[in-house]
Each structure stands twice: as structure tokens, then as C-alpha cells.
Amino acid sequence: MTAWISEFVPALFRQWAFVLAVSPILPGVVAKTKAWVAGRQGPPVIQPYRDIVKLFQKGAAYSRTTTWIFRAGPVISFSAAMAAVLMIPIGGMEAPLTFQGDLILFAYVWGTSRFFTMTAALDTGSAFEGMGASREAVFSCLAEPALFLGLLTLAREAGSLSMSDLLSVGLIRIWSIHAPALCLVTTAFIVVFLTENSRIPIDDPNTHLELTMIHEVMVLDHSGPDLALIEYASAVKFFALGALLVRIVYPIRSGGFWAGGAVLGIGLLGLSILVGVIESTMARLRLARIPQFLAFAFVLAGFGVILTLAAA
């Protein structure tokens, strides 16, 4: 028992340290890429760290309409993000938390985070935030089936229900036999990734227009440390879902935590650049067209499932 604890606890904190240290740089890289494509200097890549630190140092303003729910929202979304990353294998080894079925918990933890973010948004009694919550509700609910079907494809290929097995070395072999299915899943996951992280073409994180945003408008009234938690949580979410994508596309062979972590980090930087390029070359979808886009992702993931099922 004590041996298990002495192994488990350091792994836990190592994972958190890595994620907390790496994740804020990713939005910074996206912003830098966008600036670079647009021919601008752009903010330094470490700007998100500065923002978070600055926000933690600030005071906060609360609306008189709000209740404890408004204050609980950021805490829950940050905790959920921190819990979810424990299921992601960083290096070539297993994640600190792994069991058969952890992929379901992984997907649902984000659901908890979303639920409380939405209720916190509605707590302000503002039409803007209601609008954001309504959009978040519908789009995330449509992205969910695509995510699950994608995970199912991977699970079927890996023969396991654990994220650590799904994203293991075995993927290399699977790529060599079932490349089409994996490509379909990757495409679907990119869509889910963009949706969940409120990126163009689903959402435009940079616009200041309350009427068109999704995620940003939900957190309009949060300030100070609460906003810092939200920003940090969304960076961690970017990391977690991004790591899922990177691990699929580039299965990490072996290596310890830090060597594998470095490879993963490089992959995530690449993903951030890719997101920056996507944001620089695509217009945002009209809101009414987003379900269509997500249905497309769902169909791709479903096709992936069919291919793996038919291959048996």
C-alpha cells in the first residue's frame, strides 16, 4: 500500500506540474501564429502566463444578482480540468489514473465543467451570458457523440477502454493496418477539439462582439482570480484535448515521463501552430451552420467505427 502511494503521489504531482507549466504557452503560440500570418508582431508567447498572474493579483467585482454558483463555476471548471488531465498519458507510460472505462470519465468530467460554467453564466441574469450558455449547450451536446464514436473506434482497435491503452505504442501498429479509420477519427477529433476549445470556425475567441461569441461571452462577468481560473482551465482543456489528438497522430514509442513529455510538448506546439493557421485561413461559420459542421464530424467518426467493425 505504501509502495503504491509512494509511486502514485509523485506521479500525480509530476503530471500536474507538467500540465500547469506547459498549457498556457499553447494559446500564446496560437496568437503568435495568427499574428505572424497576418504580418503583425503579436503578443509574446508567454503572454497567457502574464495574464494569469496579473489576474490572480487583481481584485474582483461581483454582480449583486449573482449567488454562490457564480463563484463556484470557475473553481469547478478548473478542478475538472485538473482531474481530466490525470487520465492523459504524458510519456511513454501509463497515466497516473488509468482503468478500464476512464475514457468515459474523461469525457464526462468536461461535462461537469461545462454544466457549471453554463449555470454560472445564467447566474448573472444577463441576456448575453444566457446567449452564450445556450450556444455552448447545443454545440457541445452535438460534439459529444462524435467524441464518443471516435473514442469507440480507438477502443475497438486497441481492445481496451483505457486512455492509456488507447494512446499507447499499439497505435503504430494500428496506423499501419487501419490508417483510413484513424484518419477519419483524427478529423472528427479536430472538429471536436475546435468546438470544445471555442476556436474558429466554431467560435472566435478574439472578437469583442458579445452577440457572436460562445465561450467568451459566458464568462463576461467574471473578473480577477475567477477569470484567471477560467483562463487557466481553458488552457488546460486545450492541453488535454490537444494531447489526445497529438498522441493519436504521433504515437510516442517509449521514453520516460520527461522525454515523452518533451515529445508531446513539441507535438502540442505543432497543433497550436496548426490551430493558428486554421484560424488565419478560415472565416467563422454562421451560427446556424455549426450543427451541420458537427454532424459532419459525427458522420466521419461513425464511418470510422463502421470501418473498424467491418474490418473484423
Partner: peptide, 27 residues
Amino acid sequence: AIAGLALIGGLAAACFTKVFGVVFLGE
């Protein structure tokens, strides 16, 4: 069934955000 469960879960969350948000929150 898995896709359906995921959809049901998302829709239920949306529905209860609505109920709770509209009845108990705001003004």
C-alpha cells in the same frame, strides 16, 4: 447506443441548465 447516450447526456444537461438557470438564477 453509445452515441445516443452521449446525446441524451448532453441534452439532459442542457435541459437542466435551462430549468435551474431560469427558475433559480438571475432576477
